[in-house]
């Protein structure tokens, strides 16, 4: 554990809390992509099945349980409790275009051809692109509420902080995991355009609005 990894995890935690609070306080999930949330739930389920086979630390276990539980809680709020506020006609990204290549890639490019390892690899690749339906939704409607922007900023920062953690681990432990690193870089790059808009608009008190 180093400061970058901890900051990354805290940023990830914060993103989830912001999202849940936004939905709960406003009693609405307007502007949030249910498809991205479904992909995140699939990501955490596939990755954290190792809860039952592999003990790392109490910290890891608590975080894994939290990520799995909150991802399903989000889906429950979006698709059941506040279903009437879900903006489904703007949430039209075809997730099979992500799931199919990610599945094939996981079967071909992995550390070991075993059940748990392929699930882990699948989750790493899927997480990298899982935000695309959300970003697609923002670009389709041309805007995002400030709170949604803060959520996206915290979620995007998390993998960026992990990249610093991997650099740190490479120099201090000689540890590196190429699959996680490359997927993490792709994941972070997908947020670059959003980061730019966040700094130039949202932080100056303006709404995130894309030029027509």
């Amino acid at each position: 554990m180093n400061v970058f990894r901890l900051a990354g995890d805290m940023s990830h935690l914060l993103a989830i809390i912001i999202l849940l609070l936004k939905i709960w306080k406003t009693r609405s999930c307007a502007g949030i992509s249910g498809r991205s949330q479904l992909l995140f739930a699939l990501t955490y389920t596939a990755r954290y099945l190792d809860l039952v086979t592999n003990w790392v630390s109490l910290y890891n276990t608590v975080m894994k349980v939290f990520f799995i539980a909150t991802s399903y809680a989000t889906i429950y709020l979006m698709y059941l409790k506040f279903k009437a506020t879900y903006d489904s006609n703007h949430d039209t990204f075809r997730v099979e275009f992500l799931l199919l290549p990610v599945t094939i890639l996981a079967l071909v490019l992995n550390h070991e051809f075993s059940f748990m390892e392929i699930l882990w690899t699948f989750s790493i690749y899927l997480e990298a692109v899982a935000i695309l339906p959300q970003l697609f939704m923002v670009s389709k409607t041309g805007e995002a509420e400030s709170i949604t922007s803060h959520y996206l900023f915290a979620l995007g920062s998390y993998r960026l902080l992990y990249i610093f953690n991997w650099i740190w681990r490479y120099y201090t432990e000689e540890y590196y995991d190429l699959i996680a690193i490359i997927a993490g870089v792709v994941q972070t790059v997908l947020y670059c355009d959003f980061f730019y808009l966040y700094f130039t608009k949202v932080l100056k008190g303006k709404k995130l609005q894309l030029p027509a």
Partner: peptide, 10 residues
């Protein structure tokens, strides 16, 4: 055998 690779990150 499930896997021999150990992942200690989240």
């Amino acid at each position: 055998r499930f896997t021999s690779v150990l992942h200690d990150e989240l």
